[in-house]
């Protein structure tokens, strides 16, 4: 049995924000992080605010080349959105290997981001498309890059009175590739050993923009910025790609745990970044030069 708790059930966003401002309470979205945690080692008597009735927090809006995703959008909503394979290919690849069907129907994007786990699978793809998050509270709204929202191990810039309202990004340019790979012990229902998302933009045969985002290999999901910079300003040769991949591996700070050793994880970063960048160069380069 779960330890006892109180549950507030607001019917509008305003009502929810008022509750958050005036009482010490935790937002409860899909509950796929909170409820197992509560069952494993939670204390009784906490207070939660259910986001279930707040329809305006759920759904994806495509506006020109902008995508605006409500915080309560589920992982399966992402898979059901017909425009998503173009809007963020890496996010779709990720959603396909996220947990299992039942969890994907409950788990939300805001829950994944706000829990702040280093193995949060949605974060590398979102970092690879330069996503921004909008937080709202009774006092007002603020928007910041997802990159600066993540502060450390299970630490984010989220304030107790705020809700993550939307995640938004600009669709990657036409001559680009955006890829994700999750290394796990099995394909479904597994916690990520290494997660990698890359974006490469190619203009006239030269790489004009690169993003490399890594999960499960540091206290938080992060961008390997030094490695990204190595790729800018020229064609992606095998040597350049390997140097960037090695630099990304060196920037990782993985730990040993039951799923893998730190050494294995660092090696996997080198290999997976190299593989994804090669694939990205070939697909985006081929689009341009054939």
């Amino acid at each position: 049995m779960l330890p006892s708790f109180e549950l507030l059930e607001p019917h509008s966003l305003d009502e929810a924000l008022k509750m958050l401002a005036t009482s010490e309470a935790t937002p409860l979205a899909g509950g796929t992080n909170l409820l197992p945690d509560l069952r494993a080692h939670g204390r009784a008597g906490r207070r939660f605010i259910s986001l279930a009735a707040l329809d305006q927090l759920r759904g994806v809006e495509h506006k020109g080349n902008r995508v605006i995703m409500g915080g309560s959008t589920t992982l399966n909503d992402i898979l059901r959105d017909p425009l998503m394979p173009k809007a963020a290919p890496s996010l779709v690849s990720m959603a396909k290997v996220f947990a299992g069907t039942m969890i994907r129907n409950a788990a939300t994007i805001a829950g994944n981001i706000c829990y702040g786990s280093p193995s949060a699978d949605a974060i590398p793809p979102l970092l690879s498309v330069d996503a921004e998050v909008t937080l709202t509270s009774a006092a007002g709204e603020r928007t910041l890059p997802l990159d600066s929202f993540l502060l450390g191990y299970k630490k984010t810039a989220h304030q107790p009175d705020e809700l993550l309202k939307t995640v938004a990004w600009t669709i990657p340019a036409a001559d680009s590739a955006n890829l994700f790979y999750k290394l796990g012990r099995r394909r479904g229902d597994a916690i990520t050993v290494v997660g990698v998302a890359v974006t490469v933009v190619i203009e006239s045969g030269s790489c004009s923009k690169a993003r490399i985002a890594l999960g499960s290999v540091a206290p938080t999901v992060f961008r390997a910025k030094e490695a990204e910079n190595i790729l800018i300003g020229g064609p992606l040769t095998a040597a350049t790609i390997d140097q960037a991949a090695l630099t990304a591996a060196q920037a990782s700070r993985p730990i040993d745990d039951i799923r893998a050793s730190a050494e294995y994880r660092r090696h996997a970063v080198h290999m997976l970044v190299r593989r994804l960048l090669t694939q990205a160069w070939q697909t985006s380069g081929a689009k341009q030069h054939d």
Partner: peptide, 13 residues
């Protein structure tokens, strides 16, 4: 109509 884990679904929901 959506498949969910009932162990992670609150009855209130």
């Amino acid at each position: 109509g959506e498949v969910v884990d009932s162990c992670l679904t609150l009855a209130w929901n």
